[in-house]
Design a protein around this nucleic acid. Structure first.
Lengths: 337, 337
DNA sequence: AATATTAGAACAAACGTTTGTTTTAAATAA
DNA sequence: TTATTTAAAACAAACGTTTGTTCTAATATT
């Protein structure tokens, strides 16, 4: 590897001092009254030599790493992949980079990742927490470290978050089932203790309540294909088989579909289905799936904006934002009576 | 954020010099004959103070960033998302981190990302190049910078790569069409100049040739949903409508399906379809799609292993590996006669 | 003519490490 | 005792920036 050319090389070639070069390159020419010709010379030479500043040196001096960490459960889930993509793009706009950590929904891994990431002097953290333990995250918050939770969050803490109104989401979906004549509606949930799950379940119950439907059929315990599959199997064997299922994540819905297929049950003729999390491929499924869509773009933008507002204002705000969910009606719900 | 404690704090507290502390902390105690008690003291204090080394300072001095860059077209494409996920996981095992850059299939952005990433003193690069320009990439290679292309690569250059045999892939798929009685087979291609595309098209042609089918119906010019959609629309209007379509990417296939749906054409009854790139959701589509599956896990592992073997051996190898593709037969191809 | 002002640029001290070299003091050898 | 070796640790120079301060001319002011 050829030695990177540095600011001194430029200074030598231009016959100027490194401080002058640095100032020109940092756009502080006016502030420090650097002459026009000097400026031009520096810029020209920098271009010629294809100069790329050494971030480590710059960061060391300034104490800024220009790095934000993003922790998600898994990039392999299209939902989080899209989040990562959006956030990555947004962060780049600020001249920062993103380091991505994956937890695999394992809280211990989450803690380890966090430590590793911290040693990289990250300036901020955007995280989709993967469990109900919050100490390691709240510690950062109380130490005034810029942090924001997305998608999932901790209700009783002051840690800022950007998410959707999960209660409203499942309320909406459930209501839609009810309006279509469904009375025996099952809900396959994810990790029971996670707050998104709790709220979604509450919304589900509330909608049923409002419609004077008593029995609530809530099963499952994980945001995985496997859980969706297993629970659907069970549901299909109940004597009073539900006419509709609300899947609290895209992974769960995949499991549902797998089970449907094996049992040769078709959507929506034999059973109706609504899932959380939108994705283009939902349009091309055997039956295009009606879903609760997260405004991922908005969430990402808000989260990034938020981190940078903390970073620049230096004062710790504690915004907690719940965006409106949107139901994308496709054709996986049948009207019955 | 509380001020990070540094090596000097430890030195002061231990009554030792910073060099001694550094050596203990870096496991060079024996080499430099640091006394037992001093070692223990340093380690104890470091733990007490919860010392986290400043990577920037260390990196600046050592020139090592413990960072590998990964450049992909977009995380929003499940295929690349999975690659990113696998590679990220692999790289973490080495104590390194990954920075991910996205190009959006824009070569200019690719160049800029590369520059930005280089300024982070990355030690290696894994890249899915997004065009036919190779100078900026080959420059790195000739400068002995550890680099490996994955998925896409440059045939005539010595840059190492790990990919699948694209020629064989489409040959396989096309042959499968032929074996099922198809004669009028169309191929919707991606970026014409990209080598994966060229090879896939060649494999397509060769398979037809071998089967004495002359007319080859090759259309399209982009690895996008839009292109797949547009070209399918056209294909459906040809007087001799093809009975089978080979989509050279998952995005193109999505476009196909969109067009099919609009025209109320069903797979495989009205038309057969094979796509490149596998994904779990393909199983749940209206018709589960037969596809050419990349061994993503193997590709990722090999690529990462490769980067680190260059990094440690310090000698530049130029492995060029083509893995065997696998066709996953689902049910999107109909036997006709 | 002497002084003050200003534009333009250089100096030099950090930032927190790593690492080659040197110093110190104790232990061994002569 | 004096010289030599060795164990243990300190010194100090980088790494490539940023940035507060100082210097030098040239120009403007009195």
């Amino acid at each position: 590897m050829a030695a990177q050319i540095n600011i001194r090389d430029i200074a030598d070639k231009a016959g100027l001092s490194i401080s002058t070069v640095s100032r020109v390159l940092n756009g502080k020419a006016k502030e420090y009254r650097i002459g026009k010709k000097s400026q031009e010379k520096v810029i020209k030479i920098a271009k010629e030599l294809n100069y790329v500043p050494n971030q480590f040196a710059a960061n060391l001096k300034s104490g800024k790493s220009k790095t934000i960490a993003l922790i998600v459960p898994s990039l392999n889930n299209p939902f989080f992949a899209e989040i990562a993509s959006r956030i990555n793009t947004e962060i780049r706009k600020y001249g920062y980079i993103t380091i991505i950590g994956e937890t695999g929904e394992d809280q211990e891994i989450e803690k380890k990742e966090l430590q590793q990431l911290m040693s990289r002097n990250i300036e901020g953290l955007i995280i989709v927490p993967c469990g109900n333990q919050w100490e390691h995250i709240n510690n950062l918050y109380t130490q005034d470290f810029p942090i924001v939770c997305i998608d999932r969050y901790f209700e009783d803490l002051k840690i800022p978050f950007v998410s959707i109104n999960n209660y409203e989401s499942s309320f909406l979906a459930t209501k839609y089932f009810v309006d279509n004549g469904h009375k025996n509606i099952a809900c396959i949930q994810g990790v029971k203790e996670s707050n998104t799950n709790i709220l979604r379940v509450e919304g589900f119950k509330a909608a049923l309540n409002e419609s004077d439907i008593e029995s609530s059929n809530i099963v499952g315990n994980d945001f995985t294909v496997k859980n969706g599959y297993k629970e659907t199997k069970h549901l299909l064997q109940q004597e009073q088989r539900p006419t509709a299922i609300l899947a609290l994540s895209n992974t769960i819905a995949m499991g549902c579909m797998k089970a449907f297929k094996e049992a040769d049950i078709s959507v929506p003729d034999d059973i109706s289905l609504i899932t959380f999390d939108d994705h283009p491929y939902l349009d091309y499924l055997a039956t295009p799936l009606t879903c609760i869509a997260h405004p991922i773009k908005d969430i990402s933008k808000k989260a990034v904006k938020f981190i940078f507002s903390i970073l620049t204002d230096k004062k710790l705000r504690s915004d907690q934002v719940l965006l409106k969910p949107k139901m994308k009606i496709r054709s996986s719900v049948k009207a019955i009576d």
